[in-house]
Design a protein around this nucleic acid. Structure first.
Length: 926
RNA sequence: GGGCGUAUAGCUCAGAUGGUUAGAGCGCUGCGCUCACAUCGCAGAGGUCUCUGGUUCGAAUCCAGAUACGCCCACCA
C-alpha cells in the first residue's frame, strides 16, 4: 500500500465490480421491506453540475444506508426530455447549417431530435456513475419512452373526461424567442430597470356642453372643467396601440368628468371607452389606466368584465403587426422607441421617470415574456389541489426542513389553472384530434368555446373517423404538452403504469432480458406487482427550485391517479453557491465542475465534503479547497488501515468476534465510543442529518481512534489489540460506506481478505455492541487522557521537548492505581518518563489538573515565566467559575426551583474547581 | 404588498425539547519528519453568541420588536 490514497485506482474497479454482481438491482423480496427513491430526472441536455452532485449524493447515501439496513433498495433512474431546452439545443445546431426548423419540417426536425437524444441523451446518466450512484440502471426511464407516453396520454384523457382539462382563449406568458406559451411557474418575475412614461390622451366633452347654464354658481363650474387631455402612465408604451379603453377607479372624484367625455387614442385615432373598476389604484401614476386587453393580464380581466374590444398588435415573435399602424414590422422594443419619438414630436409625451418594474422572463432563454392572448389548453387545478393539501396537512407527506410545508400549502391554496400546451415540436403531442368536417361549421379550431366537444376527439389512440359525422378528415392538435405534464407522473409512470393490456407499447423489459421470452401480459403483471411493492416511494430528494414545478404536482398526480401519495418524505436541500454566495451558473463562469473534483480528489472526497457542508437545507457555499477535507479524510482512513494491516498478518486477517475478557481500559473506552457512534449515525440517517453523520464519523475516526487508540496500541500490544483494531475499523467502514463507498469497499476487501469475496455495500449495518464499560472505567480513562494533555502542555510551556522524567501524584488512591496500571502508554503518549509519587517544592516545579499533581525537576528549567503566567491565568479562570457557580447556589430560588441534579452538578463543580485551584495556589516559585 | 430564511471565533458552519463563564473544520502562532499518515502530529491564541426589550432561579437557545443580508410568491399599469 502506498502512503497516499489514490482514488483513481479504486473507484472504477469497485464500480464495475458492483455492477457485474448486479448489486444495484432491486426486485420484489417478500422477506424485506422495500425502500424506494425515484431520481429527479435530469434533463437530457444536462451535464453534471454541482447541484446534481449534491442531490444525487444525498440519494445514494440514503439508498446505500437502507440497503445495508436490510431493505430492498430501489433507486429508479431516468431522464427528462426537457421540451423547450432540448428543442433549443437542436435548433442551435440547425442554425449552424443556416437552417430553421420550419425549413426542414416537423418530421425531419423530430428525427434530428431523436438523433440527438440517442447520441447525447445518456451523457448525464454516465456522468452520474462517476459519483458512485447505485441506481438500478436496467430500469432507466425516459419521459418520452413509448410506455411512458402511454401514461401521459392516459392522464390527459382521464382529466379531459372529468372536465379537468379545457381549452380556452386567455392571456398567457408568451416567449417570443421560443415562440411558445409558458406556465406561470416557467416565467419567473425579475426586477428590471425601466421607465414609467406619462402619455397624453386627448379628451373631448361629449354631446351636451359641460358648461353650466347661466346663473349657477361659478365655483361648481370650475370644479370640473374638461381638460384637453388626460395623462396615463405606462411602462410598455408600445402596447397603447392596442388600447381599447381607459379605466379609472369609481371612487376617484378627480376623473368623474370622464364619463361624459370621448377619449381618443393618439396615432391610431381610436375612440376609447371609459370604464370604472376597483382594480385601478387611485394613488398609482395618474390614476388613469390605459387598457390593453390583448396584452396584459389585468387589462384582459377588465375587458372581460366590461365587454371591451381585443386588439392584438403583435406577431408571435413580438414584432408589431398590421394593427400597429406605421410601426408595423418593428420589433416591440424598436417600436417602443419609434413610438416615443412620435409622441414626443406631437407633444403627447408628458414626462418619463425611471422605474423599477418586474417582468416575467422565460426560464429557458431569459427573454422577457410578452403577455399574449391566445388559445391554449389548461388543467383546472383547484380540484386536484384539494386532496394534495389535505395529504400534507395530515402528514401523509412530510417536508424536511419543515418550513417548506408552509410554503407548499400557501402556494397550493392560491393555485391557478395550469397552461399545459406548448407551441413547440419536441414533446408529447396532445391526444386531441379535430374533425375538419364538424369544425368547418363552427369555425376555426382556435375558437372552440369551452365545453363544446363537437368535432374535438380526445383519445389515447388515434380515432379512425369522427364519431359525430364519420368523416375521416381528422387532424391531430399541433401543440405538445408541457414537459412537467409528463414529469408529474414520474413516481408511477416509471413503473409502467397504467398497466393496460391494450396499450400499444408496454414498457420495454429491462435490458439484457430477451423481449421475446416475456409475454406482454406476464410483463404487465410483473410491473404491476413491482409497483404495488415499491409505491408509494419513500423519500423525494430535491432542491427547493422545483417545489412547485414538480413536487407539488407529483403529489396531486399521485393522489388523483393512484389514490396514494407518491412519497412519504420530501427532503429539500439547499442550493449550491460559489464562495461569495452567488448561485453557480455557467454563464457567470463561477461553476466548480464535480467531475474535475472527482478527478483531482476522488468521488469519495466530493461526496464526504458535500455531506459535511449541507446542513439541514442550508445553501452550500463552495470553493475547490472545501473538498480538501474529504480528500484528507480519505487519506487518513487509508493510512490508518495501512498501520492496522501492518500489525495484523494478512493471512489471518478477518473480522473477529469480541471477547469480554482481557479488555484494557483503552479497549473499553474505544468500544464505548464506537457504540455511541453506531447509535448516533443510525439515528442521524433516520433524521436525514447527513452532515451530522459525516461529522461524527470523522471525529470518532480521526480524533478518537487515530489520535488516541491507535497511538495507545503502539504500546499496549496485547493479543486483543489486533482483533479490536480490525473490529473497530470494520465497523467504521460499514458506517461510512454510504457516504464514501469506494474507499470503504477497497479497505474492507483488504481486511476481509481471508473470506470469500462479498461486498461491503451489501453487508450488514452494525448493531449496537453488547460489551458495556462501567462508567467509572470510562472516567478513569478520560482522567489519564487529560493527564497526558497536561503533561504535554506543561513541558511545552517550559520549552522542553526531550523525553524527561516527570513526577505525577494524586490524592485519589484509585487514580493512582489506574495510572500505575497504565503507566507504559501514558508515558509513551506524554513523551515523558513518569514517576509516581511526590517531590518537594524546593527541587521541583509543579502544575496540577483536575485529577493529578505534576512536577519535574528544577534542573530542567531555564525559563518558567510562560508557565507561571499560565498558572496565574488558570487560577483566575477557576476563580471566575467558582464565583459564578457559588452565586447560583446562594440564589435561594435556584436551589429551590432548579432540578436536583442540576444543583448537585453545580455543587460538584465548585468542589472540583476549588480543589484544583487550591493545588495550583500551592505551587512555589522560589 | 405578502411569506420565508439567516445573523455564533478572521472564514465556513454545528449548537433537538432553555442549566457550557459556547464547539468543529479551515486559517493563524509556536514546536515537531515520534518507525500509518507533513493530505501528518503536538501545544496554543482567538467569541460581551447583531441590537433592544420580555418570560425564567437560569437564555446563544423561548417570545416581541429593530437592523442587515438573502430567497420565494403577488394583477399596481
Amino acid at each position: 500500500m502506498q502512503s497516499q490514497y489514490e482514488p483513481k485506482k479504486t473507484e472504477e474497479k469497485w464500480y464495475s465490480f458492483w455492477q457485474e454482481k448486479s448489486l444495484f438491482d432491486a426486485k420484489i423480496n417478500p422477506k424485506k421491506k422495500p425502500y424506494c427513491i425515484v431520481i429527479p430526472p435530469p434533463n437530457i441536455t444536462g451535464i453534471l453540475h454541482m447541484g446534481h452532485a449534491l442531490n444525487n449524493t444525498i440519494q445514494d447515501v440514503l439508498i446505500r444506508y437502507k440497503r445495508m439496513k436490510g431493505y430492498e433498495s430501489l433507486w429508479m433512474p431516468g431522464t427528462d426530455h426537457a421540451g423547450i431546452a432540448t428543442q433549443n439545443v437542436v435548433e442551435r445546431s440547425l442554425a449552424q447549417e443556416g437552417l430553421r426548423k420550419e425549413d426542414i419540417g416537423r418530421d425531419k426536425f423530430l428525427e434530428r431530435l431523436w438523433g440527438w437524444t440517442d447520441e447525447y441523451g445518456s451523457t448525464i446518466i454516465n456522468q452520474l456513475k462517476k459519483l458512485g450512484t447505485s441506481c438500478d440502471f436496467k430500469r432507466t426511464r425516459f419521459t418520452m419512452d413509448e410506455g411512458y407516453s402511454e401514461a401521459v396520454k392516459e392522464v390527459f384523457v382521464r382529466l379531459y373526461e372529468k372536465g379537468l382539462i379545457y381549452k380556452g382563449n386567455y392571456i398567457i406568458n408568451w416567449c417570443p424567442r421560443c415562440k411558445t406559451a409558458l406556465a406561470d411557474e416557467e416565467a419567473p418575475h425579475k426586477e428590471i430597470d425601466g421607465w414609467l412614461y406619462y402619455i397624453k390622451y386627448p379628451v373631448k366633452a361629449q354631446g351636451r356642453p359641460v358648461k353650466p347654464p347661466r346663473g349657477q354658481a361659478a365655483s361648481k363650474v370650475t370644479k370640473s372643467p374638461v381638460p384637453d387631455y388626460i395623462v396615463v402612465a405606462t411602462t410598455r408604451p408600445e402596447t397603447m396601440l392596442g388600447d381599447t379603453a381607459v379605466a379609472i377607479n369609481p371612487k376617484d372624484k378627480r376623473y368623474k368628468f370622464l364619463k361624459n367625455c370621448e377619449v381618443t387614442l393618439p396615432i391610431i385615432e381610436r375612440n376609447l371607452k371609459v370604464v370604472e373598476d376597483n382594480m385601478v389604484e387611485v394613488s398609482f401614476g395618474t390614476g388613469v389606466v390605459k387598457v390593453t386587453p390583448a396584452h396584459d393580464k389585468n387589462d384582459y380581466l377588465m375587458a372581460r368584465k366590461h365587454d371591451l374590444e381585443f386588439v392584438n398588435i403583435m406577431r408571435d415573435d413580438a414584432v408589431l403587426n398590421e394593427n400597429a399602424a406605421e410601426f408595423a414590422g418593428m420589433d416591440r422594443f424598436e417600436g417602443r422607441q419609434a413610438l416615443l419619438e412620435v409622441l414626443q414630436a406631437k407633444g403627447l409625451l408628458d414626462k418619463k421617470e425611471p422605474y423599477k418594474l418586474s417582468a416575467g422572463h422565460c426560464y429557458r432563454c431569459h427573454t422577457i415574456i410578452e403577455p399574449r392572448l391566445s388559445t391554449q389548453w389548461f388543467v383546472r387545478m383547484k380540484p386536484l389541489a384539494k386532496p394534495a393539501i389535505k395529504a400534507v396537512r395530515d402528514n401523509k407527506v412530510r417536508f424536511y426542513p419543515q418550513r417548506w410545508r408552509k410554503v407548499y400549502l400557501n402556494w397550493m391554496q392560491n393555485i391557478e389553472d395550469w397552461c399545459i400546451s406548448r407551441q413547440i415540436w419536441w414533446g408529447h403531442r396532445l391526444p386531441v384530434y379535430y374533425c375538419n368536417n364538424c369544425l368547418g361549421q363552427t369555425g376555426s379550431k382556435s375558437q372552440i368555446p369551452k365545453g363544446n366537444k363537437k368535432g374535438v376527439i380526445v383519445s389515447g389512440i388515434r380515432p379512425e373517423k369522427c364519431p359525430e359525422c364519420g368523416s375521416k378528415k381528422l387532424v391531430q392538435e399541433e401543440d405538445v404538452l408541457d414537459t412537467w405534464f409528463s414529469s408529474w407522473l414520474w413516481p408511477f409512470a416509471t413503473f409502467g403504469w397504467p398497466f393496460n393490456e391494450s396499450q400499444s407499447h408496454p414498457v420495454k423489459p429491462p435490458q439484457g432480458q430477451a423481449a421475446s421470452k416475456v409475454t406482454k401480459s406476464q410483463d404487465i403483471k410483473r410491473q404491476r406487482e413491482e409497483f404495488n411493492y415499491f409505491y408509494p416511494t419513500d423519500v423525494l430528494v430535491t432542491a427547493s427550485e422545483i417545489l412547485f414545478f414538480w413536487v407539488a404536482r407529483m403529489i396531486m398526480a399521485g393522489l388523483q391517479f393512484i389514490g396514494k401519495v407518491p412519497f412519504k418524505d420530501v427532503l429539500i436541500h439547499g442550493t449550491v453557491r460559489d464562495i461569495r454566495g452567488v448561485k453557480m451558473s455557467k454563464s457567470l463562469g463561477n461553476v466548480i465542475d464535480p467531475l474535475e473534483i472527482i478527478d483531482k480528489f476522488g468521488a469519495d472526497a466530493l461526496r464526504f465534503s458535500l455531506m459535511l457542508l449541507v446542513s439541514s437545507g442550508q445553501d452550500a457555499y463552495l470553493s475547490e479547497e472545501k473538498f480538501l477535507v474529504g480528500r484528507n479524510f480519505a487519506n487518513k482512513l487509508w493510512n490508518a488501515t495501512r498501520y492496522i494491516l501492518s500489525r495484523v498478518p494478512r493471512t489471518a486477517c478477518r473480522v473477529p468476534r469480541l471477547n469480554r475478557k482481557d479488555l484494557s481500559l483503552a479497549d473499553k473506552w474505544i468500544l464505548s465510543e464506537l457504540n455511541i457512534l453506531i447509535k448516533e449515525t443510525t439515528s442521524n440517517f433516520e433524521k436525514f442529518r447527513m452532515d451530522e453523520v459525516a461529522k461524527s464519523i470523522y471525529d470518532f475516526f480521526w480524533h478518537k481512534l487515530c489520535d488516541w487508540y491507535i497511538e495507545i496500541s503502539k504500546v499496549e500490544k496485547d493479543k486483543n489489540k489486533e482483533n479490536l483494531l480490525i473490529f473497530v475499523l470494520d465497523t467504521v467502514l460499514r458506517l461510512l460506506h454510504p457516504v464514501m463507498p469506494f474507499i470503504t469497499e477497497e479497505v474492507w476487501q483488504k481486511i476481509n481478505s481471508s473470506k470469500k469475496q462479498g461486498s461491503l455495500m451489501v453487508s450488514e449495518w452494525p448493531a449496537g455492541l453488547k460489551i458495556k464499560a462501567l462508567k467509572s472505567e470510562i472516567d478513569s480513562f478520560l482522567a489519564l487522557k487529560e493527564l497526558i494533555i497536561s503533561l504535554r502542555s506543561f513541558k511545552k510551556d517550559l520549552g522542553l521537548y526531550e523525553r524527561i522524567e516527570m513526577m505525577v501524584g494524586s490524592g485519589d488512591k484509585r487514580r493512582s492505581r489506574v495510572l500505575k496500571d497504565n503507566l507504559e502508554w501514558v508515558s509513551f503518549l506524554a513523551r515523558a518518563n513518569i514517576v509516581i509519587g511526590k517531590t518537594s517544592c524546593k527541587e521541583s516545579i509543579s502544575t496540577a489538573n483536575k485529577d493529578f499533581d505534576i512536577s519535574l525537576s528544577r534542573e530542567f528549567i531555564k525559563d518558567a515565566d510562560i508557565h507561571k503566567r499560565k498558572i496565574e491565568k488558570k487560577i483566575e479562570e477557576l476563580s471566575g467559575v467558582i464565583t459564578s457557580q457559588k452565586n447560583k447556589l446562594s440564589n435561594s430560588s435556584f436551589v429551590k426551583k432548579a432540578p436536583q441534579e442540576v444543583v448537585s452538578g453545580v455543587r460538584e463543580k465548585v468542589k472540583v474547581c476549588l480543589d484544583e485551584r487550591e493545588r495550583l495556589k500551592r505551587i512555589r516559585w522560589s
